[in-house]
Each structure stands twice: as structure tokens, then as C-alpha cells.
């Protein structure tokens, strides 16, 4: 098993390396000279040349690529923002906890509420409880998260004055962003959990368990749930990666200075070091999320654990 993990980590490094290559090339290919963009039409040619030299843009593509890859992967130096002079990596370090707080809390809500709702709907298939949950899920999935966010601000900040509308001063500032981020995920997880449950409910081993005289509640917990978890975990893995990458919208509405807002500002201002660093971080998180997801599979399902460890199969 530890060999498997080691292999995966090595694979992650390769993925990050490729991500770095791709994002560097893409930003390089974007038309336009970042220096003149920054300085504007009125800057003299001299000034622009100096700026290009400071930014390292006067080297050839391979020269720039080489120094970028070396700096990023060997020296772990992600450079400085072109628009502001802050070090990208320290800025990311400051912003990451905020995005993670919102994202991870939203994920926990997704999984817990989504799965519970889905199980509830699945075990009451065809009855009003099922329809109710599905309607709620449909509403959550259709309403865009920024719309829900704005509605929440109107209600909780303006009308009731319970929660602040923006900023990161106190823990109260995080309540609405977390809720707003989680609705869509809850809906998706509920639908996924429901359909997993329905599949499992019809499974033969459930009938076997019933025929043994096992109580229904325990059947749901011990037999149905573990088997239904696999697709749910897949959803969680994807959701975890999406949490980090999907933060721009929520962070803009609530003025939370996190990684999403950072990426957005980088893109808008053609601030390539920021864009590149953010993309690599997203790739890193996605890889870690998928790895954790795969390890969860192994933990839950002995068949997969056997595959990973290439255990001996006894016939």
C-alpha cells in the first residue's frame, strides 16, 4: 500500500510539471505585450524596454520557459506579481487558509447533508418525501451561487442584521459564504446519494440480509450505505478539487481575499505570475483530492485495496 502511495506522489509531481509547462505556454501565447499593457499608451519606448527587462520578457520563449520551470520547481520561487510587487507565494500562503475555510466547510456540509438527504429520498422512493427532496435539490442546483449569495446578504445582513455582508473580520463573515457555496453541492450529492441508494436497495445482498431477519435500519447502515458510498466518494473527490477552483464567484460577492479572487484579479490584469502560480496550486489540490479519494476507496472496498497492493487472490 505504501508503494502505491509513493507511486501516486511521484505521478503528482509529473502532473504538476506538465501543468506548469502548459500554463506557461498558454500565457506566453496570449497576444499582447504585458509591459505595454501595464504601463499604458503614454509610456515611452525606453520605459517599456526597461520594464520588459525587469519582467524577464526580453528572453526567447525557451529561455523564459527554462527560467520559469527552474524557478518554480527547483527553487520553489513563484516570482513576484507584475502589477503589485508582492511575492506570489507569500500572498498565496496568506490567502489559502481563507479559501480553504470556506471550501472545506462547504464540502463537509455537502457530504453530510447531501448524503443524508439522498438516503432519505432513496429509502422513501416514490413517496412524497422523495419528491420533496428532489424538488429542493433541483432548486439548489439551478440557482446560481452568486444569486443565492446576494439573496442571503439581503436577508441576513440587511433585513435581520445578523451577519456581516463582507470581509473576514470575524467568524460570522464566513457563515454565509460557506452556506452559499454548499447549496449546489448538497443538491448534487443528494441526487447522487439517492441514485446510489436506489441501486443498492435493489441489490441481492440486501434481500439476503432481510431474509436473515436483520432490522431495516441496520440494513441501511451496515449493508446499503457502505456499498452506496463509492459513487458518493467520487463526487466528493471532484467536489474538493472544485471547491478551490470555484471560489472566485463567492469570494467576489463577499469580498473575501482568497485564492479565487487572486486568480481573477490576475487574469483581469494580465498578471501572469499570479495566474501561473494559482493554476499550479489548483493542479496540486486537484491531485491531492483525487489521491485522498482513491485512498478512501481502498479503505472502504477491500477489492480495490487488493488491486492497489496487488495482493494474492485466493481462489
Amino acid at each position: 500500500m505504501s508503494r502505491y502511495i509513493l507511486k501516486r506522489i511521484l505521478g503528482m509531481i509529473v502532473i504538476l510539471w506538465c501543468a506548469g509547462l502548459v500554463i506557461f505556454t498558454l500565457t506566453y501565447l496570449v497576444p499582447g505585450d504585458p509591459a505595454s499593457l501595464l504601463l499604458g499608451k503614454e509610456a515611452s519606448q525606453e520605459t517599456i524596454e526597461i520594464k520588459r527587462h525587469v519582467m524577464g520578457l526580453d528572453k526567447s520563449f525557451l529561455g523564459q520557459l527554462g527560467s520559469y520551470m527552474y524557478n518554480t520547481f527547483v527553487r520553489l520561487d513563484f516570482g513576484e506579481s507584475w502589477v503589485f510587487s508582492s511575492s506570489v507565494i507569500s500572498e498565496l500562503g496568506v490567502r489559502l487558509p481563507r479559501t480553504l475555510i470556506v471550501g472545506l466547510a462547504a464540502m463537509v456540509l455537502n457530504v453530510v447533508f447531501g448524503t443524508l438527504l439522498g438516503i432519505f429520498a432513496g429509502t422513501h422512493e416514490g413517496r412524497w418525501q422523495d419528491s420533496l427532496v428532489m424538488i429542493i435539490a433541483m432548486v439548489f442546483v439551478s440557482a446560481p451561487d452568486f444569486f443565492v449569495a446576494l439573496l442571503m446578504i439581503l436577508l441576513f445582513s440587511l433585513k435581520l442584521n445578523w451577519l456581516p455582508a463582507y470581509g473576514i473580520d470575524s467568524w460570522k463573515c464566513y457563515v454565509m459564504p460557506i452556506l452559499a457555496s454548499s447549496f449546489g453541492g448538497i443538491a448534487i450529492n443528494a441526487r447522487q446519494a439517492r441514485s446510489s441508494m436506489l441501486e443498492v436497495i435493489r441489490a441481492d445482498f440486501v434481500t439476503t440480509a432481510r431474509s436473515k431477519g436483520q432490522k431495516e435500519g441496520i440494513i441501511v447502515r451496515k449493508h446499503m450505505l457502505p456499498n452506496a458510498m463509492m459513487p458518493i466518494i467520487t463526487g466528493v473527490g471532484g467536489g474538493l478539487a472544485g471547491v478551490i477552483a470555484g471560489s472566485p464567484v463567492i469570494e467576489t460577492v463577499f469580498s473575501i481575499p482568497g485564492v479565487g479572487a487572486y486568480l481573477l484579479s490576475g487574469v483581469n490584469q494580465h498578471d501572469y505570475p499570479v495566474v501561473r502560480a494559482c493554476v499550479i496550486f489548483f493542479a496540486l489540490f486537484a491531485s491531492i483530492a483525487v489521491l485522498i479519494m482513491d485512498l478512501c476507496y481502498a479503505f472502504l472496498d477491500p477489492r480495490i485495496k487488493a488491486q492497489y497492493s496487488k495482493g494474492k487472490k485466493v481462489k
Binding site: 445482498f205 436483520q214 472496498d301
Partner: peptide, 25 residues
């Protein structure tokens, strides 16, 4: 009371052994 009967007084063997057992237990 049926819970007592099932598995205790009356038991059933199913058709498809491949799916009759819980794969995770």
C-alpha cells in the same frame, strides 16, 4: 415477530451467489 422467523425458523438460499453476498463484509 417476522424478524425472528426470518433466518431463524425459515431461511432462504438465493439464485445468484455472485451478488447474494455483501462485497464489503
Amino acid at each position: 415477530e417476522m424478524l425472528q422467523v426470518r433466518g431463524g425458523k425459515i431461511a432462504m438460499i438465493f439464485q445468484d451467489p455472485m451478488t447474494a453476498l455483501n462485497p464489503l463484509m
